[in-house]
Design a protein around this nucleic acid. Structure first.
Length: 168
DNA sequence: GCCAACGTTGGC
DNA sequence: GCCAACGTTGGC
């Protein structure tokens, strides 16, 4: 199924800005999206994410410098390399090391992404939740812990339209 | 810091 | 294969 699908896909990648932020991605321009250790997310990276796919970068567990919540979508990236084995799983010195993953049969996969742009403003989780058009979006679901989420094209467009508005 | 929701592990 | 215990995620 995955290989027959044409056209660009949309994703939402979560990151904790204390670990890796949109600003770091902007500085580095491209990066490995490493350390995904969840099977469902792994399947998306290994099987479905393709170069050219659009990605919302989402900051979880995020606060501003003065301690206010800053959880939400902060920018846009693009997949620039399709799924390949996550070598950090094979490195005993890495905090993402997984002794069960083997070089000849890797458990975990990553993709490369490149920076596209920061959004003009944070689209907060609260704001996403308050938009009825996004009620099916995975990130607003209670208890949604998936760190690599597919996004529907209409959801993608809705968020971009929200960027133009002043937040309530 | 709390804790609910979720995923994984391991005994049986 | 069930399910209790445990660890993690992530909003609040």
């Amino acid at each position: 199924m995955a290989t027959k699908d044409k056209g660009v896909r949309y994703w939402l990648f979560k990151t904790e800005p204390d670990v890796y932020s949109i600003d770091q991605l902007q500085k580095e321009k491209t990066c490995y999206w490493e350390g995904i250790r969840n099977y469902q997310a792994r399947n998306s990276l290994r099987d479905d994410a393709k170069p050219g796919d659009h990605v919302f970068i989402y900051h979880s567990n995020a606060k501003t410098d003065d301690g206010k919540p800053a959880i939400g979508i902060v920018g846009i990236a693009e997949v620039c390399k399709a799924g390949y084995p996550d070598h950090t799983a094979l490195d005993p010195k890495s905090k993402y090391y997984d002794p069960k993953s083997k070089a000849d049969n890797p458990t975990w996969y990553m993709v490369d992404v490149k920076f596209v742009r920061k959004l003009n403003r944070l689209i907060s989780l609260q704001e996403l939740k308050s938009n009825p058009a996004l009620e099916k979006m995975l990130v607003v679901q209670a208890g949604s812990r998936l760190s690599i989420q597919p996004v529907q094209s209409n959801e993608w467009q809705t968020v971009l339209n929200m960027e133009k508005n002043t937040p309530k």
